[in-house]
Amino acid sequence: EVTIKANLIFANGSTQTAEFKGTFEKATSEAYAYADTLKKDNGEYTVDVADKGYTLNIKFAG
Rank of each mutant, 00 (worst) to 15 (best):
27 A>V: 06
34 Y>A: 08
49 V>H: 14
11 A>K: 07
4 I>L: 06
34 Y>E: 02
46 T>W: 06
53 G>S: 05
44 E>W: 11
31 A>R: 00
6 A>W: 02
41 D>Y: 12
48 D>Q: 07
33 A>H: 14
17 T>R: 09
22 G>C: 02
61 A>L: 11
35 A>R: 00
51 D>H: 05
45 Y>M: 04
20 F>E: 00
11 A>F: 08
54 Y>V: 14
30 E>G: 07
54 Y>M: 14
25 E>I: 10
1 E>T: 15
24 F>W: 14
7 N>Y: 10
52 K>Y: 13
6 A>L: 11
52 K>S: 10
36 D>G: 06
59 K>Y: 07
39 K>F: 13
15 T>S: 09
37 T>D: 15
31 A>K: 00
2 V>N: 11
42 N>Q: 15
35 A>T: 09
28 T>C: 04
58 I>F: 11
59 K>R: 13
25 E>N: 05
53 G>E: 04
30 E>I: 07
39 K>D: 02
12 N>D: 07
62 G>F: 11
17 T>H: 07
42 N>I: 05
49 V>E: 07
26 K>N: 08
42 N>H: 15
38 L>A: 06
44 E>C: 05
27 A>W: 01
8 L>C: 03
61 A>C: 04
41 D>S: 08
55 T>K: 10
19 E>P: 05
31 A>P: 01
6 A>V: 14
21 K>C: 04
48 D>I: 13
61 A>D: 08
59 K>L: 14
20 F>A: 01
51 D>S: 07
26 K>G: 08
54 Y>L: 07
12 N>V: 06
54 Y>C: 03
53 G>L: 03
26 K>Q: 06
50 A>V: 14
55 T>R: 07
40 K>R: 06
57 N>D: 05
52 K>L: 11
54 Y>Q: 11
12 N>W: 07
18 A>Y: 07
42 N>W: 13
51 D>V: 02
6 A>F: 03
43 G>Y: 03
11 A>I: 06
2 V>Y: 09
3 T>P: 05
36 D>R: 04
31 A>Q: 01
12 N>F: 09
43 G>T: 02
18 A>T: 05
1 E>W: 08
5 K>S: 15
56 L>P: 00
60 F>Y: 09
39 K>N: 05
12 N>C: 03
20 F>Y: 06
13 G>A: 04
49 V>S: 15
14 S>E: 12
6 A>C: 03
24 F>Q: 08
35 A>M: 13
24 F>R: 06
36 D>H: 05
32 Y>M: 06
7 N>F: 14
38 L>M: 15
18 A>S: 11
5 K>Y: 13
52 K>I: 12
19 E>K: 14
33 A>W: 13
26 K>Y: 10
15 T>D: 12
48 D>F: 12
53 G>D: 03
19 E>I: 08
4 I>E: 00
33 A>T: 09
36 D>S: 10
26 K>F: 14
6 A>H: 00
33 A>K: 12
43 G>I: 02
5 K>C: 03
8 L>A: 05
42 N>C: 03
40 K>I: 08
28 T>R: 09
45 Y>R: 01
15 T>G: 07
22 G>P: 01
30 E>H: 07
23 T>Y: 14
7 N>W: 05
38 L>N: 09
26 K>T: 08
49 V>F: 13
